[in-house]
């Protein structure tokens, strides 16, 4: 009855050369996979006891690289090379997503929200509304408050695709989150978009 003193012995084996775990039980496969991945991350650690450091101060190297990629993406965007910008943001997103798992999730959230937002803008510049809408949604999912641009971008993309009702709903949701926010100009833009969609819906043209 006392579960704290017993455990189920699982059929595990370990490869002496690679030190990778394996199990004859297929239901454990995903867990074992995750564990092996985590193990490799552990081996790459250079902390004294090879245990993950506390999440607060992260390794700055990766942040610098991500920033660099974002800067070059921004530069490409300004030059009008939108596909290149998308590629750069793509690299940066991958870089941010591959941070060691135990690093501060708040930071990852912030970075990804920013990068997805930029990528959405780059898609929109190429009139790829579907891609833009999805990226902007991810950005908002990462960061709901203080992300007026993300809200606006998805609203705009939905509008461009002629999905007026969805756009209206989305913008209303965005305004709820952002109205009190500090970015007055952004909120104004969002409100303008909302009014436009509203008018369109009222006119019954869609």
């Amino acid at each position: 009855m006392d579960a704290s003193e017993t455990f189920t012995l699982l059929p595990l084996t370990i490869d002496p050369a690679t030190k990778a775990l394996a199990s004859s039980d297929p239901s454990l496969a995903t867990d074992i996979d995750d564990l092996n991945k985590l193990h490799r991350a552990f081996l790459a650690l250079d902390t004294p006891n090879q245990v993950p450091p506390p999440p607060a101060p992260v390794n700055p190297k990766r942040s610098v690289q991500i920033n660099k990629l974002r800067e070059s993406g921004n530069a490409a965007y300004k030059k009008g090379a939108f596909p290149d910008a998308v590629k750069m943001y793509d690299f940066a997103i991958r870089m941010a997503a591959e941070r060691p798992m135990w690093e501060a999730s708040g930071l990852v959230r912030e970075e990804l929200a920013n990068l997805y937002n930029n990528r959405a803008q780059a898609w929109m510049a190429q009139s790829l509304w579907a891609e833009g809408a999805v990226d902007a949604e991810v950005s908002v999912e990462m960061k709901r408050v203080g992300n007026v641009k993300g809200w606006w971008r998805r609203g705009q993309c939905l509008k461009e695709m002629g999905r007026w009702e969805e756009a209206g709903e989305w913008v209303r949701g965005g305004l709820e989150f952002e109205r009190a926010g500090p970015d007055k100009a952004g909120v104004g833009e969002l409100e303008a978009l909302g009014r436009e969609v509203e008018k369109m819906l009222e006119s019954g043209e869609v």
Binding site: W102, E103, A104, V138, E141, M142
Partner: peptide, 18 residues
């Protein structure tokens, strides 16, 4: 660390879903 891993995991899941 475990908490951050959990948070990051949720984050990734949501991103992948969208």
């Amino acid at each position: 660390s475990a908490n951050e891993i959990n948070q990051n995991f949720i984050l990734k899941q949501r991103t992948a879903e969208i």
